[in-house]
Computed example of a mutant assay.
Amino acid sequence: MLSPAPFLALALTAVLPFVLSNGVPIHVSPGLNVSTNPNITARLPPCTNLTYANSPTIPCYTQLQVTSYLKNFNSTIAEVCSPIQLWSQCLLLSVYSVPGVNCTMTSNTTSTCTPFDCATLNSTACPQPAPNNFTNITTDQAQGWYGVWNVYSAHHFLTAWATALNTTSSEKAILGVINPRVANTATTVLTSLVSKYGFNPNADAAMVKLAQVKAVKPEPQFGNRHSKGQSSNPTGAQWRGILYAKMQSISDLAAGNFTDFIEMVGDGDFSVRGLAGVDALIDSLKNGTKVGG
């Protein structure tokens, strides 16, 4: 599982204006002006109260118009981000107002500085934003917090699935969804496994949708003995590696392609806690039953 402990002490200070690593302040439009909409402001107090009990929630994702906030942030990416930064890394840097572990605002080197990274499945540098009793923050700050929560939450969800699928005890479940008489790909096998063993329908569906985005190269097909040129079916251990690589490609899309990320989280389904636990997923795959079912 991810270990957010090194980051729990991060404080969400002044989110706007954001500050680049060279100390230059920049301004990012926080989204639609929710503060002037009485239908929303009447329900805003709990959404700007980021105690553990009050956040995150799907209704607040909607009320705070976080999708608009993220889209507006992405529209400024050329001005805000380094050309070599992923958009998600830039968002984390901007909202946290610090560039990462052991980094400073004025001098960062790869030997001493670990930038925020929510692209690599085994990354320990994708922090969970800690509420820590932010009970009287601005709408802008709440939008920023929800924005980075969704980056973290998507990363955590994908990592939980990847870790569970790459566990030895999952091999029986993996082989159990494979039909040797048809062509099996990483996407078809993953889709079958999620359908059979997933336990968060909305988040699972969003992940499968990203899995089905066409890659530059066609996926290798396995097991179709009647098709010329098809490879033999991999072993359980080999399938684990294939599925882990597939999960990494999904993670790459979510962390690196803003359009794909918004399609994944844009309904607010990742603005909840407990989307996926590695242990629960492993048990589900091992025991052949859906979590809670």
Rank of each mutant, 00 (worst) to 15 (best):
P46R: 01
F261E: 06
L175D: 01
T104N: 04
V19W: 08
C113K: 00
N39I: 05
P201R: 12
T114I: 07
G266C: 11
N224G: 10
S88Q: 06
F73G: 00
T289Y: 09
A203E: 15
A245I: 13
A173F: 10
L12M: 02
G277R: 00
Q63T: 04
Y244W: 04
H156P: 05
Q85A: 03
P30G: 02
N22I: 09
P30K: 05
W145N: 03
V213G: 00
S68D: 14
L16T: 07
Y52C: 07
H226C: 04
C47Y: 09
M105E: 06
S29E: 12
Q248M: 09
S232G: 07
V278L: 04
G147Q: 04
D283A: 11
T104H: 06
E263D: 15
L44R: 05
K214I: 02
L12G: 08
F116H: 09
V28Y: 14
S97D: 13
Q128N: 08
A119S: 01
T124L: 12
G23W: 11
S153P: 11
L165Y: 00
P38W: 12
W161V: 11
L281V: 06
L44S: 13
G293S: 11
T138G: 00
E171K: 11
V24L: 01
L2D: 02
T159D: 04
N72P: 04
V80R: 11
E79W: 05
P17W: 05
R225L: 12
S251P: 08
P30W: 12
Q63D: 13
V24E: 14
Q212T: 14
S29H: 07
A11T: 14
S195Q: 01
E79Q: 14
N102R: 08
L121F: 10
T76S: 15
N33Y: 01
T48W: 10
P17S: 00
Q141R: 07
D279M: 14
K209A: 15
P115I: 03
A154H: 01
P127W: 11
T167R: 03
E219V: 12
A215W: 05
Q65I: 14
V194S: 13
P59Q: 02
G293C: 11
V189C: 03
C126D: 00
V177N: 01
Q128R: 06
L64W: 07
V66K: 08
K217M: 11
N233A: 08
